[in-house]
Nucleic acid binder design. Structure first.
Lengths: 200, 200
DNA sequence: AAGAAAGTAGCACGGTTGTACTACCATGGC
DNA sequence: GCCATGGTAGTACAACCGTGCTACTTTCTT
């Protein structure tokens, strides 16, 4: 047997190369050759792991979801203060380079959905992830008695999801800075929280 | 002199052809030849009006802004009820095929900004347009005495802008239907309006 | 030590791309 | 009637695309 490589790790490296090319040079520059060069391997070698371009793009999209859910999953889950809830939600915002790359990839490849049936299925995954992320935050808050009574959790999840995506889009476009983004989330949650009862 | 054509009209036809190819087949399919075929002319003829691909894409982007501002500008401007305000804001949402095409174009070409310096400048125009649209709605409401006192118009414009973009994104992604989109706007405005005083 | 398997690199292919350039056509002013 | 001119179409070219295929290298098993 020859040297074995970790296929998953390799796929991740190549997917990240897609992210970088995408962000730096645009969708049009995402070719098998360019991505291979960015990853420091030959095109033939890349094709050994990801045989078609469609699979390459799918891997790039899948890694976005994987990284985002991992990040969200390892975040501490006690919502001591409202700021903790904001911090948890902020995990889904493009606040550093890594997350900006991920979101740009998500947006660009979502647009390419029409062309590539393999991407069509994956398009829903990030949206679903953010949706359940929002829901989880609200459910945690409710479990800890922070939420006002009589709130429709479905409706509030939807509203929060719209807000988070709107803020994310504006962050990516440079229309918002991190601080005001935080404030927007904070103010939104303030309307859902119990009226500063015991200590929140 | 030979037959003269209306260059502006021609540019608009070609820009709309870009929209359609973009939405139907994805960004990758937007080539000079494909767009020319979609518009029913030859590539050579297209190049006579839009000499480079960069200019073609810029024309597609410019038409988005042009159409959107025209639509917003001709909308009746009396905010008799809150529903009128919602209707005015809805002008900026992708609620019909034309506006869906426009938004998809805006999103896709924004992502391509890195590649094309000519697009980089145009990227801000749609954002600025929506922003001032939101501001205009709030200013009209205030002028007609519908707004609560003590509101920071800058801050509220920003919040409304985030909401409108979030709703627009969700509409385009099929995560929202027109009716709930309308409700979201309505509820947001309800918090800014005077407490149903004289009759609103 | 030897061979088989896994990984790598690279070339070849048909096709498409953006753009330059040229020939052709239709029309308006003289 | 004619020709200059704006519009149209088509071809040519170098570059790049995705993908198939083949040689070469490396390493583990026997």
């Amino acid at each position: 047997m020859p040297r074995l490589i970790d296929h998953d790790a390799r796929r991740a490296e190549l997917a990240e190369a897609v992210w970088r090319v995408l962000a730096r040079d645009g969708v049009a520059a995402v070719s098998v050759r360019n991505v291979a060069a960015e990853a420091g391997v030959s095109a033939g070698s890349l094709r050994h792991v990801l045989p078609t371009k469609s699979l390459l793009l799918a891997a790039a999209m899948e890694l976005v979801v994987e990284r985002a859910t991992a990040r969200f999953g390892t975040h501490p889950r006690d919502l001591e203060t409202r700021a903790d809830a904001v911090a948890l939600l902020s995990e889904m915002l493009p606040l550093d380079d890594e997350r900006r790359l991920e979101m740009r990839t998500h947006l660009a490849l979502s647009a390419e959905t029409a062309n590539d049936p393999a991407l069509a299925e994956l398009r829903r995954a990030p949206d679903d992830g953010v949706r359940t992320g929002c829901r989880v935050v609200l459910e945690l808050a409710r479990a800890q008695g922070r939420l006002r009574r009589g709130l429709d959790l479905d409706a509030e999840t939807l509203r929060l999801h719209v807000l988070v995506d709107g803020v994310a889009l504006h962050l990516l476009g440079g229309l918002l800075d991190a601080e005001t983004a935080r404030t927007l989330l904070e103010e939104h949650l303030a309307r859902l929280w119990v009226r500063s009862g015991p200590r929140s």
